[in-house]
Design a protein around this nucleic acid. Structure first.
Length: 430
DNA sequence: TCTGGGGTCCTAGGACCC
DNA sequence: TCTGGGGTCCTAGGACCC
């Protein structure tokens, strides 16, 4: 039986979310900025029409913002996460076989609907999401995921499609691939697009017709899969259950450069706690951690520095007390006086399911006590917000604090009662 | 002055083993 | 003196995604 996939993609997702709470923003240019209000990561159609490009630094669009009254927002990931969940819940009404591909995209397996009027069905999905969540979406439907991506993209560009495009007829597929640049195909990035152009492959239609050997040689087995998918042969399966992450990372840039160790320690402690929380959420333990520290990539006069340190743990753990202890050691090992640092972060590696961790007699007692404490902390943070419970080491200084000049109002106010546990809790009690 | 954050997969090459 | 070949594991680097 033939396969059929839909890709549902939220239009200008973050910008659409911000617009939801303020109807006066309808048809106004909106941009959403990255952490630290650094660069543009989402734009409404009106902002795109002004020529504001994805990823440009915020300071470069200042005059455009002023002259055209562009509404600027700092990013609010809690809001976007919440809206994303509502969109997914709505989509689940239409097919139980759903893959959440990213915060604003989901694949639906519609193979069982092959003989129904798929165009009408897709239109109904689009209208329902709009009505239930207020988020506009575009839908592409095709026999493979890669072709569904192509369809989705064209559905937004064509005024006739109005956000819904079904590609099943071979003549329509040919037309679509001829109108799509090779570099706009899912899996073909900037480097490959350049290389392909040098080899005479310019459109998705060209790419569909390269030989397997050519694809394998220049694009590896991954690219070969892409080429086959363009031919209509499904190679990329639905992933209904997201696999556990093999690496978990938390990092942030500082609003200003920072030179002293204790301020960086505070920031790293917060990153470590966030990272450990993600780790426990997927019920895993980490066998190693990597801490990195770097100066700005952009400031050419200043001395550049990047360094990282990996520490293997005696046994996999999800205790943030233990992780904090080693993160601090790793940071100390790579910190050098005399630099203006811009970013630090932690990566948890060698991740295993928590129920696979062998308890040695040595760490068993510690482990049980830590596990109970971590559960308590997770519960408190879940109920009252992440800032509820911290440690002395996180400090109150905000030398490394994020800049968020354009935050939208906080509709759900959180209780912020700070309970302090000493920085030395772990090491002194060991 | 001001430039994000968080992931995955593949390949080539070196170390090491028999 | 003769100096092979196959396998595994690990890591760094490069490519991609949103």
């Amino acid at each position: 039986m033939s396969k059929l996939f839909a890709l549902v993609d939220c239009n200008n997702f973050y910008a659409s979310c911000e617009r939801l709470f303020d109807p006066s923003l309808e048809e106004k240019p909106i941009v959403v900025l990255s952490n630290n209000d650094g660069c543009v990561i989402a734009r409404s159609n009106e902002a795109k029409a002004l020529g504001i490009k994805m990823g440009v630094p915020a300071f470069e669009i200042k005059s455009l913002v002023k002259t055209h009254g562009v509404k600027v927002f700092s990013s609010n990931y809690e809001l976007y996460g919440d809206m994303s969940r509502r969109v997914v819940e709505t989509l689940q009404q239409f097919s139980p076989d759903l893959e959440v591909y990213s915060i604003d995209e989901s694949f639906l397996d519609l193979s069982n609907f092959y003989n129904t009027d798929i165009q009408e069905y897709a239109k109904e999905i689009k209208a329902t999401v709009q009505q239930w969540t207020g988020i506009p979406v575009a839908i592409g439907v095709a026999p493979t995921k890669t072709l569904a991506k192509v369809a989705n993209r064209l559905s937004k560009k064509s005024s006739k499609a109005k956000g819904v495009l079904v590609l099943t007829d071979p003549r329509h597929i040919e037309e679509a691939l001829k109108r799509t640049k090779a570099g706009d195909v899912w899996g073909i990035g900037r480097r490959y697009a350049k290389k392909l152009a040098e080899l005479g492959v310019h459109t998705a239609w060209d790419l569909r017709h390269v030989t397997d050997a050519f694809a394998r040689k220049y694009l590896t087995v991954v690219g070969l899969r892409t080429v086959k998918e363009l031919r209509g042969e499904p190679c990329i399966e639905m992933e209904m259950v997201p696999p556990a992450k093999q690496n978990i990372c938390t990092s942030r840039s500082f609003a200003k450069t920072v030179g002293n160790l204790s301020a960086i320690e505070e920031a790293l402690a917060t990153h470590t706690i966030r990272c450990a929380t993600k780790l426990r959420k997927q019920k895993s333990c980490a066998g190693a951690l990597t801490v990195f520290l770097q100066t700005s990539r952009f400031n050419e006069q200043d001395k550049l520095y990047f360094n990282s340190r990996t520490i293997k743990l005696n046994a996999p753990t999800s205790s943030e007390l233990e992780l904090l202890h080693y993160a601090k050691l790793a940071l100390k090992a790579i910190f050098r006086e005399g630099y203006g640092y811009k970013k630090t972060g932690i990566i948890l590696n060698d991740i295993v399911p928590e129920n696979q961790v062998q308890l040695s007699l040595l760490n068993a007692g510690h482990h049980e006590r830590d596990t109970r404490l971590m559960q308590t902390l997770d519960n408190l943070r879940e109920r009252f917000g992440f800032a509820t419970v911290g440690y002395g080491m996180q400090g109150e200084g905000n030398e490394c604090a994020l800049r968020k000049e354009f935050a939208s109002p906080c509709y759900t106010t959180k209780v912020a009662e700070v309970m302090k546990v000493g920085w030395n809790y772990y090491s002194s009690s060991k």
